[in-house]
């Protein structure tokens, strides 16, 4: 088994809900991530899937320490990173980097892209100026841009090229892990394929591990080895791609899979669709019992009372449901 890089246990991340302008006071707390476990091994891709508000982005930001964690542990190579400071934190940030959904928002519009890509090296004071420049050019070439792009500005690039710049910026540190938050959801289909192939190549060549945050289940399946499905701050199902996609055991996962539009008119007309009713409840005041029960087509009396824990079967397929679907 390859090395376990990230081991997160019972991670909770919340945000205050405040009232008042002058005398601001905390009236409630939104538990965006509410007790999530996660393992990431060397060279693998773990996908975190779910709809808006399920806590996937907050979890991703917690993993790279962009968001403080309320409780729980996140270990990187055996060392808890939730309390890291100073030199230790910056050493961690050299190895675990992130790429964002909107590459234009992540780049400074007034900085030449060479500078932008080089910035992490400057911050961490790595190498001589000459070495830095060589590493930047190397990273740009890796992502399919050329050295002549070094002196251009972000606005001169298309969406797909900007995402390549974002990837180059994450790569320049020679990281072990890249957390990718919706890396292709802002891109057109034909360009999306280019970026997915690039991420795949980089993983193969450099042995990177990815945490892939996405709402598009098809994108996820193409890149991932394992999937974790989140709903209202909890993991409801976790397993390998084949386990989760071919034999989902949580009704929410089944509904998510069924709701994807199918690019095949004949199948689209004949297949069974589970259309969930209603909307995701507010995470400020999550439902008692199983959080999915108000929308669950298979809910039974006990579901409103008992909060199911994530339980794994012998094959490692985990599901948090009192009445899981037959495997």
């Amino acid at each position: 088994m390859s090395e376990l890089l990230i081991r997160a246990r019972d991670v909770r991340i919340g945000f205050p809900v405040t009232r008042g302008i002058v005398f601001q006071r905390e009236v409630a707390r939104v538990q965006a991530v509410d007790g999530v476990d996660l393992d990431l091994h060397e060279g693998e891709t773990l996908a975190i899937v779910g709809e808006s508000g399920c806590g996937k982005t907050t979890l991703a930001r917690g993993l790279v320490r962009l968001q403080p964690v309320d409780s729980g542990t996140i270990e990187y190579r055996g060392r808890d990173i939730t309390g890291l400071r100073g030199r230790d934190l910056s050493a961690f940030r050299r190895e675990v980097t992130m790429i964002f959904q909107d590459p234009i928002a992540a780049l400074d519009p007034r900085m030449r892209i060479g500078q932008s890509v080089q910035e992490p090296l400057d911050i961490h004071d790595i190498g001589t100026p000459k070495e830095r420049r060589a590493r930047v050019q190397n990273a740009l070439e890796r992502v399919g841009l050329s050295a002549e792009h070094y002196n251009r500005f972000p606005h001169e690039f298309s969406g797909g090229q900007r995402q390549r710049i974002g990837i180059a910026r994450a790569l320049v540190m020679n990281p072990k892990v890249i957390v990718c938050d919706e890396p292709v959801s802002a891109l057109d289909v034909s360009v999306q394929a280019q970026i997915l192939n690039l991420l795949d190549d980089l993983q193969r060549d450099l042995g990177l591990a990815y945490v892939l945050i996405a709402h598009d289940l098809d994108v996820v399946r193409y890149l991932s080895d394992r999937v974790q499905v989140m709903y209202l701050g909890r993991t409801v199902e976790a397993g390998t791609d084949d386990q989760v996609y071919d034999a989902p055991r949580h009704p929410y996962t089944a509904a998510l899979l069924a709701a994807r539009p199918v690019a095949d008119p004949a199948r689209a007309r004949t297949r069974d669709r589970i259309v969930l009713q209603g909307d995701v409840p507010s995470p400020i005041d999550p439902p008692a019992g199983c959080r999915f029960h108000p929308r669950c087509p298979m809910a039974q009396a006990g579901c409103a009372v008992t909060d199911p824990a994530l339980e794994q079967d012998p094959a490692g397929h985990g599901v948090a449901c009192l009445h899981p679907l037959a495997p």
């Binding site: 298309s158 797909g160 090229q161 289909v189 034909s190 360009v191 999306q192 394929a193 280019q194 997915l196 192939n197 795949d200 598009d216 289940l217 098809d218 994108v219 399946r221 193409y222 890149l223 991932s224 791609d241 994807r260 199918v262 690019a263």
Partner: peptide, 20 residues
């Protein structure tokens, strides 16, 4: 059609339309 990830198996390379 061929660049849709849902129409591929994992590990199989996605067709990509070059350029923009």
């Amino acid at each position: 059609l061929t660049s849709l990830p849902g129409r591929h198996r994992a590990g199989e390379r996605l067709h990509q339309i070059p350029g923009t």
